[in-house]
Amino acid sequence: MAAPQSRAAGGQWHKHLLLSPPLAFFAAFALFPLGFTIYVSLSNWSITGEHRFIGFGNYATILASDTFRQSFLNTVVFAVVTVLLQYVLGLTLALLVYRSTRGQSALRLLLLVPMMFTPVVVGFVWKTLFDPSYGPISWLFDRVGLPQVPWFSEQLPAMAAIVIADVWQWTPFMFLILFAALRSLPTAPLEAAMVDGASGRRLLFDHMLPMLLPASMTAILLRSIEAFKLFDVVYLMTGGGPGVKTSTVTLSAYFTGLRSGDLGTAAAMTTMLLIVVLIATMVLLRLLFWAGRRRSRADDAAALQVERDDVPDPTEAVDAPVTTEVR
């Protein structure tokens, strides 16, 4: 039947034509910048515009650079620590609000407020809060009798301050997703677990958390992608300092590319980051897929397949199954 096929092919062709504007946009705004960045990372492009292809030279340079290595390590540490803290806090808050019988909607709204600030404001506010000389936190430490912490002049306190600011801003995101997931959990298995003798902590760890797994993975995935690109809060609070002790890959790329004018090296840095994010995303997506598949309802075809695989009960041999008689 040639006619319907050629018609189908014609339909395909039309589809492609109709899809071409968005595809062109995608090419122009996503693929081109990506390809261009990779090209730049392989050249010695500087802000003055002169450039020459130099292969993997930039990559060799950054891998040998202590600054980049420090920035890279910081980025990973920030991503892991902030996302984990955000998850634990978000989950705790979601459970608390879920259990609370009163004021749920008010609490929900209040908890979302930090997410509505732009990162610039968040960075500025927390920088002020942590300021060693006039910041309220230093004042509070003083009042309570705790020793003064050199918030921005030593690596660990500075990193802690950044983590706190980022966690403050993004915990609401985790809270929101996990709270919605909690609300949509089926109640019957939880009731069954209670009747079967589980309570409190066991109910949470044996039943609620496993059932929350797909939502948890999704939230963690989304936050992780963002966390690897951490920039604004660091830029505003410490500027990467002291020295480059709190610098991140994005910050490092910014200074190298736009401040020092070495676009090639900066592009190599962002490409490295892209590769890492890609790998992390792939691993998390795998986990998410796996978690989702374990729970998903078998579709009808699969269920029928399952039925046919049933081992026939030997005691039922007397009543031969109807199907064998038909055959």
Binding site: P189, A192, L213
Partner: peptide
């Protein structure tokens, strides 16, 4: 007495199996 302390077993109308186990 909380449900988990009653030592009562129940078969639920909608099965209520643990989907992740």
């Amino acid at each position: 007495t909380a449900p988990e302390r009653r030592d009562i077993a129940m078969v639920f109308e909608n099965y209520a199996l643990y989907p992740h186990l």
